[in-house]
Each structure stands twice: as C-alpha cells, then as structure tokens.
Design a protein around this nucleic acid. Structure first.
Length: 593
RNA sequence: GGCCCCGUAGCUCAGCAGGAUAGAGCGACCGCCUCCUAAGCGGUAGGUCACAGGUUCGAAUCCUGUCGGGGCCGCCA
C-alpha cells in the first residue's frame, strides 16, 4: 500500500515515513514473537523530531509495546535498534530517553524519494484510505433569501477543500446544499419581492419590519414586472404568493450558484426542503423514529435563566434526542400542529442515510452551533448508530476594512457579500486566506492586508515560491538541459549533498503524512500551513544561493548538478501545486506586476 | 441555568489522535541585492501554554473543576 512496483521491478517509495513505520512494526513483532497481522500498532507513532539531535525519524514503538509485553522499554529498544540497524535504508539508530528510537536514514533514501515524487506528479501524497467510501458533504446551505456573504464563503471554501482532500484520499464525495425553500422566511422573501415588483411599476412602497430590503431584490422586481406586467398590483396575497415565492427562490438560487461559481465551487446537488413535504416523506422519517420509541407527547422544561416569565408549559410532540446524546428533547411540531423546522431536517437526514452513504459530514456556520447535537442524534437514531456523522462548525469571519471591523448587520444587506470579497481580491486569495485558519477559530478577513503582495499575505508567499521554481526551470531549459519530468526523474542525484538540500527533500517526504492527517481529521488548514513551511524552506535555500553559489540551481559549469538541483526544485513545485489544488487555488508560473 | 467553541510571545495564530529543550508570521531591534525574481533571506529580543487538581514513564495536548471571551438555548428558520 505504501510502495508500488516500478516498471524496473524495484519498489518506489511514495511515503518514506509509512515505509519506516512498517519496518519498525515488522521488526518489533519479530522481537516479540508476534504475528504482525494480528498486532495492534495504533499507539505506535512515527514522527519527525523537532530537534535535529533526535534524528530524522523517531518512534515510540519500544515504549508503547513494552508495557503489554512485560518488557523493559529500554531493553526492548536496544534489541529493536540492533535489528533496525541492519536495514539498508538506515544510517544510524539510537536509543534515547525512556526508550525512543531515533533514526537517521541514508541521504539516498530522501533523494530517491524525489524520483517518486516527480513520477507521481499531481497524485503524490494521495492515498486510498477511503477505499471508495461514499461521503455526503453538506455545506453552505444558506437560506435562499439573498446573496451569500463572507461568512458563507468560509463555509463554502472549507467544505469544498475538505471535499477535495477526501477525494484525494480515496473517498467518493457528494457535495450537497440543503435548500431551505419551505419556511416562513421564503414567504417574507416573496413579499419583499412583491414590493420591489410594485416599485418597478412606479409605486410607492413601504417595507414591514423583517422584510428583506437589500437592493438585490430590485432586479427580481423588474423581472417580475416583465413577466407579469401589472397583474398583481393591489391583488390579495393568495393570488401571487406561491408564484412569487417560486420566482424569487429561483432567482436567489441562481445568484447563489453564481456566487459559488466565483469561488470555483460546484454543488452536486441542491436538496429542496419543499420536496420533503411531498409524498409524506416527513411522516415516514418520524415513523422511523416512532418505531424506535423516540417520539412522545410531553412538555419541555423551560430554559433556565432570564426568560422564565414568558414560559408557558405546553404539550408537544417531541423527539427523544437525549437518548442519542442531546441535552434536551426536541419539539417536532408547533402548537398549531404544523412541523417545526427540525422535522424536515429529520427527513432530510433520513434521506441521506437511505441513499447509502458511508459517512455524513455537515458544515455549519457558527450560528448553528446549538444544532449540531440534535442532528447527530437524528443520524445516530435513524441509522442505528451505523452512519458516522461529523459536524464541523465554521466560526465567524470578521471583515476588516479601512483598519476597522466592518459592520455585519443582517438587516438591509449591510453584510459584506461574498462577491465583493472575491471581486476585490480574487478567488484564490479568498480561498487561501480562509483556509489559513482552523475552522473553529475566528477569522479576520482584512481587505487591505490580503491585497498586499508580501509575506504578510501567505498565498503570495507560496505562489512566489512556485513561480520562482518555474522561472528557474525555464532558465535551466534555456541552457540546454532537458527538464521534462521523465528526464528529471532519472537524473543522477549524487550532487545533492548539502544538508539543507537533504532537509528540503525530507520536508517533501512529509507531504503524504500531512495529507493523511488533514484528511482523517477533516482539517484542510493543515495543508495551507504545510505549504507555507515548505515555501519558507525553499525560499531560504534559494537565498543561500546568494552566499553559497554552489547551491544555486543553475550553474553552467556543473550540468549534472544542475539537473539534480532542478529535480529537487521540481519536487517542491509538485507538492506546492498539488497542495494548492486541494485548497482549490491555481499555482502561478510567473508573478506579474 | 444548560450546551458548544475558544483562552499558547506585545498582536494574529500553528502545535501532527500524549512524547524528549513549545513554533511561525506580524510588530521591535540588527544585518543581507556585483547573486537564477529583495514580492525574498539571516539574526536578536520576547512565553509560569488562563488557573487548580487528576490519569500517565511523559500533558499545551486526555479527564474534572474554577475563572475569562464568544455563540446557541420551545411557540423563527
């Protein structure tokens, strides 16, 4: 799994750390006289120590295994070190501290890995961990009552990047948007559109409180005028509400699709809430819960603190979500007998489960934090615990403009729209900046800083590294050296001997681990951080070329060395390009003014 | 009152399903362009990882509690 056979019949490593891990486990089980296939190695870590004194690769294998085997950690470590030492890849193995094994590999291991990197190209670092598992990834799901704002953009970018990451690690991802086209807010939208329609016909209008006043509805009003003329002027609501609702929702959906498209995002499916009200699909889902004894008539306790005065006990139809980890049971019917918002959500998740996904992921905005437990409870209940669900919350985006936080009032379109951000700084910068933070940490989106083309702006820093490499390779090619990947992968790498060159090769070898970790934890930001580190290390090596000319990539007097250094640089570019594509950012081949 | 997230350097944040001397950027200070793009690089200064217990050979990381910041909490969606 971690190695593949090349045409020449030798093993090409695609993940050095995974290879070493296998080696360690093999030697360890041999020492302990255990069957490697029947050995729990989950506690064994392979890591890159922070300090060089601790070697290049370290493992806690002896420490963790000693406990269960009734052996002394250090004594076990010494034996393990001796057998590891005989592996041809190993330069040295030392026992340290309570039983750590600090290994150094022969430089050739890191250098040879560069060939695999170049051969693998854009697939380097990917793996098949998902094994085709079908993942439903729901994100954005903003109400179709207006254009997306920067907060939605964060959820959109996060969800899409997570999708790419999962695809890169062998998952079959469905990107889905739950369209709340059925609630009262859509009626309000229709009424607001009606007002804009009247306005387009030259009438005086007055908004009611709660109406959507954003001017994005003006063009909807104009379109309505063009479609219906003055048919619905002064007519009762029953005559126009349904068709205005559909008209406005369609218009908003188009606008949302357009916004997402600006960020390079395409949903596989928009799932309509309204469709759930048809064919008794909500009843079906509730019935499933009922059969599991999770539906009952009862009263909720009042929420404690301040508001008891307004509280009137009321008998309601409740879902016993506490049986699946929620804090309180949840109402599914309002007092008038109609469904609460939660009921179609139950049906929606029942639908997802019925579609046979192996895993569900929901990306919610911070304002839905209180919602995650009940959704998890629903999925747990309806799948009988079989379908795992991960709810990821994206925290607020604070927009900084002119040095201060911009107002983000929900009223009257005062929020900063997604398309404003994208048109100001472009999709690539928007995406990268939003992925430079963990999803659950608040994020500042500073319009000024993000436009700077300096180290302050991480996307340019990474792009600059890539552009530098492309530029260098162009120059190398001009000097008559064949820089095709196929040729670079075959280059003699003898001339790569400087510690910093080896260190860079080592960094490149970490990429598969980063991908795996980011994918497992659903944390695409790790990719962005890694790219930053890689770029930094490359820039550093590049600048050293100023002081030490033998480190420069292109040296006319040393063509074999030039080819080797080009291969190293090319490997960096492969990883940057690959990482950026996970983030959904296009690599730049040259920087323009 | 309950639940969720957060609390790491002056500021903004990383810290890899516990690991060995806690990192980066910005800001501050000192340096580096006869050199493949200085849109860059090197160095110095700066932290009782909010606090207190617990688990462990070992805790910034896991558990409990406290304090502080943000968010959510039926008859909106």
């Amino acid at each position: 799994m971690t190695g593949m056979w090349s045409a020449e019949g030798r093993v090409c490593m695609v993940d050095v750390f995974a290879e070493i891990r296998e080696l360690v486990i093999a030697e360890l089980t041999a020492q302990l006289g255990k069957d490697p296939d029947d050995f729990d190695a989950s506690a064994i870590t392979i890591e890159r120590p922070k300090t060089v004194a601790h070697g290049e690769v370290a493992t806690n294998a002896a420490i963790t295994a000693a406990k269960g085997a009734g052996r002394q950690p250090r004594e076990l470590a010494v034996g393990l070190a001796a057998s590891l030492q005989t592996d041809p890849r190993m330069a040295s193995v030392e026992v340290a501290g309570p039983g750590f094994l600090n290994m150094r590999l022969k430089p050739e291991v890191w250098k040879e890995n560069l060939r695999s990197v170049i051969r693998a190209g854009s697939s380097y670092g990917g793996n098949d961990r998902g094994n085709g598992r079908r993942v439903n990834l729901e994100f954005v799901s903003a109400n179709p009552t207006g254009p997306l704002h920067v907060g939605h953009a964060r959820g959109a970018v996060f969800g899409d990047a997570l999708g790419r990451l999962l695809e890169f690690t062998g998952h079959d991802v469905t990107r889905e948007y739950y369209l709340n086209d059925g609630g009262a807010q859509v009626d309000t939208l229709a009424r607001s559109a009606h007002l804009r329609y009247l306005e387009a016909l030259g009438k005086e209008i007055a908004f009611a409180s709660g109406d959507y006043r954003g001017d994005y509805l003006c063009q909807v009003g104009v379109a309505l005028k063009e479609t219906y003329g003055d048919r619905f002027v002064g007519r009762p609501e029953e005559e126009w509400l349904d068709r205005f609702r559909k008209f406005a929702v369609d218009a908003m959906l188009d606008s949302i699709r357009e916004d997402l498209y600006l960020l390079g995002i395409r949903m596989d499916r928009f799932f309509s809430e309204v469709s759930l009200y048809q064919d008794g699909r909500i009843d079906d889902a509730i019935e499933q819960l009922r059969q599991r004894g999770l539906i009952y008539e009862g009263e909720l306790l009042p929420p404690k603190g301040g508001h008891e005065v307004d509280w009137e006990p009321r008998k309601q139809t409740l879902f016993r979500s506490t049986a699946h980890g929620d804090d309180t049971d949840r109402p599914i019917r309002k007092a008038d007998g109609s469904w609460t918002y939660f009921a179609p959500d139950i049906a929606y998740h029942y639908d997802k489960i019925s579609r046979g996904y192996d895993e569900l992921i929901n990306v919610f905005g911070a304002d839905h934090s209180g919602y995650s437990k009940r959704i998890s409870a629903v999925v747990s209940a309806l799948s009988d615990g079989r379908t795992p669900i991960d709810v990821k919350l994206t925290q607020l985006v604070r927009v900084i403009k002119d040095g201060g936080a911009a107002k983000m009032s929900k009223r009257a379109g005062e929020f900063v729209q997604l398309r404003d951000a994208v048109s100001a700084v472009g999709p690539d910068v928007t995406r990268f900046v939003m992925l430079m933070r963990r999803n659950d940490a608040q994020l500042d989106f500073d319009f000024e800083k993000v436009r700077e083309q300096s180290k302050e702006n991480p996307v340019f820093y990474v792009q600059y590294a890539h552009a530098r490499i492309c530029s260098a390779i162009r120059k190398v090619a001009q000097s008559g050296i064949d820089t095709d990947d196929a040729r670079l992968a075959e280059a003699s790498l003898e001339r790569l001997g400087h510690p910093d060159q080896i260190a860079l090769a080592r960094r490149i070898a970490e990429w598969p681990r980063i991908v795996d970790l980011a994918s497992r934890n659903h944390e695409p930001h790790r990719v962005a951080f890694f790219l930053n580190e890689l770029a930094s290390e490359f820039h550093s090596l590049w600048s050293q070329g100023n002081r030490e000319p033998e480190l420069r990539i292109l040296q006319e007097s040393d063509l074999p060395g030039t080819t080797a250094r080009t291969a190293l640089a090319r490997s960096v570019a492969v990883v940057i390009s690959c990482g950026l594509s996970i983030l959904g950012v296009k690599p730049m081949h040259e920087m323009r003014n």
